[in-house]
Amino acid sequence: MAAINTEFGKELKKYGAFDFNACYNCGNCTAVCSLSTEEDSFPREMVRFSVLGLEDDIRSSLKPWLCYYCGECSTHCPQEANPGELMMSLRRWLTTEYDWTKLSGLLYRSLPLTIIGFIIATLGVLVFSVLENFNLQSIMHIGHLFEIIAIAAVFGFILLPNIIRMWWMIILKPKIKVPLINYFTSFGELIIHMFTQKRSLGCDDNQLRWFEHFIIVIGYLGLLFTTVFLDWFSNDSLFVIVLGYVMSIIIFIVTIDFMSDRIKKQKEMSKYSQPSDWMFVVWLFLMGLTAFVVRLFIDTGLIEKNIWLYLFHLTILVQWALIIVPFGKWTHFLYRSFAMYFAKIKAV
């Protein structure tokens, strides 16, 4: 027996959900959703759980991650209850549930706290630069080291424990019996989804969206690989230099398109943007752009006189690595892939 908790709905509104109370349970949203299946029907069930405040059921559900927000459900909702935006909010809420530090919840709910976090990161870069006497060589060197360390730390101390928490909520706590072998047989699913998001191809809207996402994942991972492992800014190999250029161009071109959608608000999914959505796309754009310009300055020899440019890039990088990646929307990319993995494990 489950008790109704109307407070949950109010909490959820802080994560961007609105009007979902208007739902009169016709199921139209589920019916028009092309990703909804007999095994996994959504989003109405999630709307209903949210209205009634059935937190446990939501916490152990993978359905919010199965949605790729084409927006059909919201477009056709006869009560204009915005199930699509509710699903997005549930993803935000789940992210904070998985997060043992609870910092992501703070970021979603409070813009001022987010801004303070960004300022602290900026100040950190400034202090570090002062300590290094604005020596470009050593700053770039340490910047590169920082990247490696940050990735390892964020992954080891935050993301990995969070994924374990997610696993606990979805498989362990609801006492779902899964043979160990499934974890291995399903592993391919994780990789495929992480790199291709192929599930979103099932969405009704268009293949372009999937393609853009695919490109940006490639671009992002490519740039990450180029800068971190090939040390792009210090590498002289023509292949590496060009590779970095290509990857960074991809990122800022595609993000420009994403941002313009959010400004135009024509597509259902880009109608309601939360600060976290903006931050993700803007910082990604800035990463691509600044990396591109820094390398350009390096290649044209201008960087010595424009060390501020690298500092700006570094600030963006620090904010991205320490705030957006572990606590922001970046995690969706990770959790979504794991959600597919867990779903596969459960289903096998």
């Binding site: 016709c26 199921g27 139209n28 949203c29 589920t30 019916a31 028009v32 959703c33 109405r44 056709h76």
Partner: peptide
């Protein structure tokens, strides 16, 4: 109980109704 979300047609002219059985 459930609102029809969309309808598609088969070759024989029959129709598939998609809905959520509430």
């Amino acid at each position: 109980k459930g609102k029809i979300g969309k309808i598609t047609e088969n070759e024989n002219g029959n129709l598939n109704l998609r809905y959520e059985d509430i």
